[in-house]
Simulated scan of single mutants.
Amino acid sequence: MKSLNKALSIAAILGLSLMSVVASAAQKIAVVDVQLVLQSLPQVAAIEQKINSEFEAQIQEVTAMREEGNFLMEKLQREAATMSEEQKQELQQQIQALGQQMQQKGQPLQQNMQRRTAEERNKLLGLIKQAIDGIAAADGYDMVINAQSVPFAKDQFDISQKVLDQVSKAN
């Protein structure tokens, strides 16, 4: 009786393990390289141009300050031998004040540009997610994995180009 129960238990375990192998073999899995898709989108260049034009006046202001600071430093280096100590100190103070102004304007500008870039990037990631969901549903994929999480996948499982094509058409 004990050997019969043992045999039935082993048979049940083997049967369940075979069913799980069959069930996992029936799953359809795809891979997508989200970073590659994001970098390849034509919308990325348009977004970059949009953000640059949005902050164009501030960028020009900081650039002009940088150029003026460079000019004053070159002037100090060129003419230091013929300047009095008072003139040198005055020029150094101008350079220092200009550097502080540039930092006060440049740092918030950089933060604002990074914030806007992240907002636009998140919109694109949303479009990519929608495209992945749509392709997965249409082609019957049970699972779509980010290609960077997988050490190797055959090209036949990669749907990155399909996602890129679909998102490129979105805008």
Score class of each variant (00 low, 15 high):
residue 102 M to D: 06
residue 48 E to V: 02
residue 78 R to F: 07
residue 58 Q to D: 14
residue 36 L to T: 13
residue 84 S to G: 15
residue 140 G to I: 09
residue 102 M to C: 04
residue 159 I to M: 11
residue 101 Q to I: 00
residue 36 L to Q: 14
residue 76 L to G: 00
residue 129 K to R: 12
residue 125 L to N: 15
residue 70 N to C: 00
residue 18 L to E: 03
residue 169 K to M: 07
residue 25 A to M: 11
residue 137 A to M: 07
residue 109 L to R: 10
residue 7 A to F: 14
residue 41 L to E: 13
residue 111 Q to W: 02
residue 165 D to P: 00
residue 168 S to P: 02
residue 25 A to T: 14
residue 46 A to T: 15
residue 63 T to A: 06
residue 19 M to R: 03
residue 11 A to E: 08
residue 90 E to F: 03
residue 120 E to N: 14
residue 107 Q to H: 02
residue 83 M to G: 02
residue 8 L to H: 09
residue 15 G to C: 07
residue 2 K to V: 08
residue 145 I to G: 08
residue 155 D to G: 15
residue 103 Q to R: 12
residue 160 S to Q: 12
residue 55 F to D: 02
residue 134 G to N: 11
residue 47 I to T: 08
residue 49 Q to L: 05
residue 43 Q to N: 09
residue 150 V to W: 01
residue 56 E to D: 11
residue 69 G to C: 08
residue 151 P to Y: 10
residue 28 K to I: 00
residue 60 Q to G: 10
residue 6 K to M: 10
residue 92 Q to S: 09
residue 31 V to Y: 07
residue 102 M to P: 08
residue 169 K to L: 06
residue 170 A to F: 13
residue 80 A to L: 04
residue 106 G to Y: 06
residue 34 V to I: 13
residue 34 V to R: 09
residue 65 M to F: 08
residue 54 E to R: 15
